[in-house]
Amino acid sequence: MRLILLGPPGAGKGTQSARFMQKYGIPQLSTGDMLRAAVSAATPIGLKAKAIMDAGGLVSDDIVVGIVADRIRESDATRGFILDGFPRTVNQAQALDAMLAEQHMDLDSVIELKVDEAALLDRIASRVQEMVAAGKPVRADDNPDAFKTRLDAYRTLTAPVSAYYEKKGRLRTIDGMAPADTVTEMIDEVLSHCVKA
């Protein structure tokens, strides 16, 4: 199962990815997590990405594409993977198609979680409160200004990615404002038509 989850920041991609990762026994490949790991390890790419991420910006395509290309070659991704937060641009989507073709792979589905942007601010505020209550660090890019920058970037850069996959007949849209369990059921329904015997 090779799946892309699209949707703006706070749409619930991480929550849904975690559920299907467990169900199918495949890794969730979050470019955000991979970049944060590089930041935490203070690698050269991590240090470069940190300043951009702290400002709510997006790292360059070459950094992200390189990280993803390396990751999908790892042994735990041979049965499939869920891409969360990638591709963010049509260029990245085209690079992903080329990478997969080189490895004789194809995508099973591209699912977009459609949400009300105004409601996303409430979701982010709740996520920050939960992190603080749990004693966990709050992501620098979860402050309101950085979030607005991320949302604007999503609208500008990633909306064309949806159109790109729609033209290929791959895009399926799910109501991301439904309760999380309902969203899971709707995604499950889409994926049930993709699972190979």
Score class of each variant (00 low, 15 high):
48 K>S: 10
73 R>V: 03
44 P>I: 06
71 R>Q: 07
42 A>R: 15
58 L>C: 04
67 I>F: 07
43 T>K: 12
64 V>K: 10
66 G>Y: 10
45 I>E: 14
52 I>T: 14
36 R>V: 01
49 A>H: 13
40 S>F: 03
72 I>S: 01
64 V>S: 14
29 L>E: 00
42 A>C: 12
60 S>R: 07
33 D>R: 11
66 G>F: 07
71 R>W: 02
71 R>V: 02
53 M>A: 01
55 A>D: 13
70 D>C: 11
52 I>Q: 08
37 A>G: 08
60 S>P: 01
42 A>V: 03
51 A>E: 14
41 A>E: 14
38 A>S: 14
39 V>N: 08
72 I>Y: 04
64 V>A: 15
40 S>Y: 01
55 A>Y: 03
62 D>R: 02
36 R>C: 05
49 A>R: 13
29 L>I: 15
42 A>F: 00
40 S>D: 12
68 V>P: 04
64 V>Q: 06
64 V>W: 02
73 R>I: 00
60 S>N: 11
48 K>Y: 09
31 T>Q: 07
62 D>G: 01
36 R>F: 03
42 A>H: 15
39 V>K: 11
47 L>Q: 15
34 M>K: 08
46 G>K: 09
52 I>D: 05
68 V>W: 04
51 A>L: 11
73 R>A: 14
68 V>T: 03
48 K>W: 01
33 D>P: 09
48 K>T: 09
34 M>I: 13
29 L>C: 08
72 I>W: 03
57 G>K: 12
32 G>E: 05
69 A>S: 14
56 G>L: 09
68 V>I: 15
27 P>D: 10
63 I>M: 14
68 V>F: 04
29 L>G: 01
54 D>Y: 04
34 M>C: 10
63 I>H: 01
54 D>S: 03
61 D>H: 05
51 A>Y: 00
27 P>V: 07
45 I>N: 12
54 D>Q: 06
48 K>H: 12
32 G>H: 09
32 G>K: 12
45 I>P: 03
68 V>N: 03
56 G>S: 04
69 A>M: 00
73 R>Q: 15
50 K>H: 05
58 L>A: 06
57 G>R: 06
58 L>D: 03
32 G>P: 09
41 A>G: 04
65 V>A: 00
54 D>N: 14
54 D>F: 05
40 S>K: 15
60 S>E: 14
61 D>G: 04
46 G>W: 06
49 A>F: 10
39 V>E: 11
51 A>N: 05
47 L>C: 09
44 P>R: 06
35 L>M: 11
34 M>S: 06
60 S>G: 07
49 A>E: 10
32 G>D: 04
62 D>N: 12
64 V>F: 01
40 S>C: 00
52 I>Y: 06
66 G>N: 08
67 I>Y: 06
45 I>W: 14
56 G>M: 08
61 D>N: 13
